[in-house]
Design a protein around this nucleic acid. Structure first.
Lengths: 120, 120
DNA sequence: GCCGTTCTTAACCTGATGGTTGACAATCTC
DNA sequence: GAGATTGTCAACCATCAGGTTAAGAACGGC
């Protein structure tokens, strides 16, 4: 369920053009033509990119006459940040414990014997 | 340069199996066989996943006899977090300014005229 | 109503990706 | 050294992703 969503978000941001679009939308909303201008790909390609971003929930598209203003949805970033921070914290906690363990060990040379069954 | 790196990281984490591997490595280092056990794909497939993660700099692989212990490299997460946080902050700042603008405007009904050239 | 503008959808091509099987390198065990 | 264990590499296959061109939908302006 949420795994699908996360996959879509990460996948969407794996493309440099799409990341650039997100970066520009963080500054201001923009229309499809405005967004497409800097890149030397067709408008259709950019339209596809926007569909990918929209499916990932990273942007929303509305209607204003013929224009389709694109808007960055910042909430989705929280989903990613939570995922990343969770595992970063776990890993760091693990290092902290390891450092502690090493500090409490006797101060001998590098060829220390393998710690058989230390924390198992 | 760093764009390539970011693409590799996001792309690596776009796959649910690889995210699961990262999650398990956050708890403890593990060998390829141990990592492969829960999934119903071949060992070779998992080996490929690990190569992708290693190329993204998310894990490192060393040697211990026949075993190849895999280790999570938490520093790379910072790269992602920085990217995400930068644009999330920009977007939020933009909302803040918009809210302020709306608050300073006269209190009339919904059909307010378009703000022609408001901040341009 | 018609034309130009804006944007999306469909069909298609090509290259990357995730999976498989098969071969083999490297290491421990006997 | 022979055999088992652990893991990688190569070749192959199917699907997906990003690009294109072509067609058309939706709207504003005349």
């Amino acid at each position: 369920m949420s795994a699908e969503a996360l996959s879509r978000v990460f996948s969407a941001l794996a493309d440099p053009t799409r990341r650039d679009i997100v970066a520009r939308l963080a500054v201001a909303d923009a229309t499809v033509n405005e967004l497409a201008a800097p890149y030397d790909v067709t408008l259709q390609a950019v339209s596809k990119h926007l569909k990918v971003l929209a499916d990932a929930g990273l942007v929303s598209r509305s209607r204003d006459g013929q224009r389709r203003p694109v808007h960055l949805e910042a909430e989705v970033f929280d989903l990613m940040t939570k995922w990343i921070e969770r595992y970063r914290r776990e890993a760091e906690e693990r290092y902290r414990r390891l450092d502690e363990l090493l500090r409490t060990l006797p101060e001998d040379g590098p060829p220390a014997p393998p710690i058989e069954g230390a924390s198992r």
